[in-house]
Design a protein around this nucleic acid. Sequence first.
DNA 1: GATAACAGACCGACTAGTCGGTAAGGGTAC
DNA 2: GTACCCTTACCGACTAGTCGGTCTGTTATC
Lengths: 226, 226
Amino acid sequence: MGKSSVNRRVGVKRANAAPDTPEEKKDARTRLLDAALAVIRTKGFSATRVDELCAAAGVAKGGFFHHFKSKEALGVAAADYWNETTSSLFESAPYHRSSDPLTRFLDYLQFRRALIAGEIPEFTCLVGTMTQEVYETSPDIRDACWRSISGHAETLEADIKAAMKKYNVDGMSAKSLALYTQATIQGAFILAKAKDDPKVAIDCIDHLIRYVELLFGRKGGKASRK
Amino acid sequence: MGKSSVNRRVGVKRANAAPDTPEEKKDARTRLLDAALAVIRTKGFSATRVDELCAAAGVAKGGFFHHFKSKEALGVAAADYWNETTSSLFESAPYHRSSDPLTRFLDYLQFRRALIAGEIPEFTCLVGTMTQEVYETSPDIRDACWRSISGHAETLEADIKAAMKKYNVDGMSAKSLALYTQATIQGAFILAKAKDDPKVAIDCIDHLIRYVELLFGRKGGKASRK
DNA sequence: GATAACAGACCGACTAGTCGGTAAGGGTAC
DNA sequence: GTACCCTTACCGACTAGTCGGTCTGTTATC
């Protein structure tokens, strides 16, 4: 099945010469990376086959190894690509609007909560998944994953620091709280995967939100969140 | 290397006839499961090779498939075995001593905190790692992982429920808080792996402890934990 | 005509799983 | 008590198929 009809797009417009063409067809490298995000998030890095990515991207084996010198190099590139993709998503998200830093931070958490929808591979985290598999076997991928996680956490630090100052909260660092939010979100994804139910992840985000509210005294001492 | 000297334990005592013999040499199945815990925690399920487990356990290929009908079946058995192992660890742990349920719960969290020591594969969670890889490809393993996680969370529910009653905390379920602790711990492991530093995981547990303290009003409103 | 961007046949190492065999107990009939 | 047999545990060579990676084209663009 599907052997002769796969690559009948012979006259594909050289996309890189005119990247502004609004055609849906991106270049092979990008298509491979898009495929990598989808497949790796679904079945992990080790179980992802190069041939599978080629098929999904409509690229032949030679094309893959033209752009990536090895599967591991693709892993690094995928983590970086994920970093770019998510960065622009969060940059353009609406949670930066409020003038109050704590509200911005809480709105971020609400935004993360709202992202948990649809199928599990669609909202879970690529770099969290890859980290678990390769942290001992591929330092390059591991470091790329950490860059993505810690880099994202750093985008929260300014607001957290400002909120801590404004509401007189101390006893911890803004960086540590930012990382804690990421840990909790990653853990929430694991539970959702294990239970096969996104709801349990949402419950976790609600606890996280409650923690921040209690920490900054926005809600009364003895929780009462609905 | 190591081909002729592997199985020179010819006169191995029939272990199942007299399981009380204090010999260090367990039966092949147990040795395979022990090997599975170590190897899978280090490099994940997909990247773990059957031959590798056989070598680590000092068992031949045939022995492996005598005890497990497939690699996937081993995955299920490993999750169950992990469940048994950790259950007895936590049952015999000292955090059940206090007469106050909240103290017992907080002592549990301190116990989890104290477990984070040594090399990363030694304190991270098997079922959390496996879940990420196989949640879509192997429902059997995924379910076994969920049994382990949720089963462990359930051991906390009674104390949490009692503490909620005693300290008049509501607005959430004991079950959901128990699961939240597990999510956070799992997420803490991911950060530790990504950063290659257990310290970041300990910081996360400290936040979790602070959350519980705030929730139950054990510490003043505006955190001040050192 | 040089180069980048692929195509796709091919290779060799690897890998899950098979299969026929061996040996050690345990039951039991005598 | 021993001869017989069945079951369970385990061995290890073998296989059929898989997978990352290579190599030799081919085509379009500058």
